[in-house]
Simulated scan of single mutants.
Amino acid sequence: MPNKTPLHDAHVAAGGKMVDFAGWELPIHYGSQIEEHHAVRRAAGMFDVSHMTVVDIQGAGARDYLRYLLANDIAKLGETGQALYGCMLDHQGGVLDDLITYYLADDFYRTVVNAATRDQDIAWMREQAGDFDVDIVERDDLAMVAVQGPEARERVIDVLNAAAAESLKPFRAISHGDYFVARTGYTGEDGFEVLMPESEAEGFWQQLVEAGVQPCGLGARDSLRLEAGLNLYGQDMDTSTTPLESNLGWTVAFDPGDRQFIGRKALEQQKADGVPRRLVGLVMGRGGIPRTGSTVHTDNGEGQVTSGAFGPTTECPVALARIPAGEFEEVEVELRGRRLKARVVKPPFVRMGKVRI
């Protein structure tokens, strides 16, 4: 049986079409994925992301441990609540997961990892702890709601009466009573991701509904993140790909040169040899929708669509694709035996409600 979040009954009561996602029963939509998508781009929508895993890392060795565990360098974090996005790699440089890490104190950090990789992530984190003086604690007592869109912050601040969050900068978080409010998201829009005790989740959700925030499902979350050019673990990257091949080279901190993080040697070797593949954006006409796995033909060989859909905001098909290294203005995507032209662009396709292609 799939796991259920604290908001499960609220989803069912609101008419959510429930599906199994990474072992969790979650709404794919509440009637119209397109309307939910537009609600986030134009006003405010919210997502139940309580299936994601919150892990607190505490102890005198927490900082050194995370500098070894992650390809990005948490030494960049020095202000309470400051956040950093990056990848956790295996020793071959393959991506085990992408996650956000929050600095709460020199000996206290909080990470949020993906539901689909929950068990392997925690097992890996504990295995790599070795002699570091750290405690790794899964916070399964917390729920999480993402509220996104140009009006999202205003709605959350009003509901929580959290005036302190008005001046919160992107990739920063504050504690507000029992709530942890972070100015982060996965849609390409402004907003908050809010952690709270499970017992508070349904009340918070209903208050947001009354404030005019649109409940949204997994379908809109996927189309929004794709338009925003954000990778989905298991599709756009996994252990068979490195950050350098996944448009995430900017998240790898090679400086300082004496910091030894897991996967560093493999990434340095790949850089020296030349990165063989890269993740790009594709824009197509109306002849077909690029789907995951579709073959991409280039002058340097074949690639593959990793994520593709019709973009409700772009009003055209868009995709992320991993293709051979090289500079291309145009490629061909094979759909049902036909080769259709696609323009190569740098993601994102949409940011803060504005089409960028």
Rank of each mutant, 00 (worst) to 15 (best):
G86I: 01
D64F: 11
Y102V: 02
W24V: 04
G59S: 13
R126L: 08
L89F: 07
G130D: 15
Q128W: 13
W124S: 15
A22V: 01
D141H: 02
A71M: 12
H38I: 11
L104G: 10
S32I: 11
A83I: 11
G23Q: 01
R63A: 11
M125W: 06
T53M: 10
Y103D: 11
D20R: 01
K76M: 14
D119A: 06
Y85W: 09
C87K: 10
G59V: 07
Y85K: 08
R42V: 12
I122E: 02
L96W: 03
H91Y: 13
V113Q: 12
E79C: 13
D64Y: 15
V147L: 03
M144W: 09
M52F: 04
T101Q: 12
R118W: 00
T111F: 07
Y30T: 03
D141Y: 01
G31P: 00
C87V: 11
H51E: 10
G59N: 08
I122H: 02
D56A: 08
T111P: 07
V112Y: 01
Q33E: 15
H29K: 06
Y102F: 05
C87M: 11
A146P: 02
M46D: 09
V49F: 05
G94F: 02
G23E: 00
M46F: 04
D97I: 02
M144N: 14
V145K: 11
E25G: 07
R67P: 12
V40D: 03
M52D: 07
G149L: 05
Q148C: 01
Y30H: 08
G149I: 07
A123W: 03
I28W: 06
D64E: 15
E138Y: 09
G86L: 02
T101V: 14
D64S: 15
E36H: 00
A22H: 02
V112R: 02
A71Q: 14
A129I: 04
R67N: 09
M18L: 05
T111C: 10
G31W: 00
H51M: 08
D107T: 13
G23T: 00
F108R: 15
A62W: 09
D97E: 04
A60G: 08
L70Y: 15
L84G: 10
Q120K: 15
D140W: 08
I28E: 10
D90K: 01
G61F: 05
D20A: 01
D121F: 03
T117D: 12
G86P: 02
A43N: 09
I34M: 06
D64P: 10
Q92C: 14
L26Q: 07
T101G: 09
R67F: 10
R41L: 13
R118F: 03
A83L: 12
L96A: 03
A146E: 08
R41F: 10
D56Y: 06
F132C: 04
Q120H: 14
A44K: 09
G45D: 01
Y68T: 15
L99A: 12
A39I: 04
Y102K: 00
A116C: 08
Y103V: 08
G149T: 04
L142H: 14
A115M: 04
A123I: 07
Y103M: 09
G149N: 10
Q148G: 00
L69C: 12
G61M: 07
W124G: 14
D106L: 03
R67S: 12
D20H: 00
V40A: 06
N72S: 08
Q92S: 14
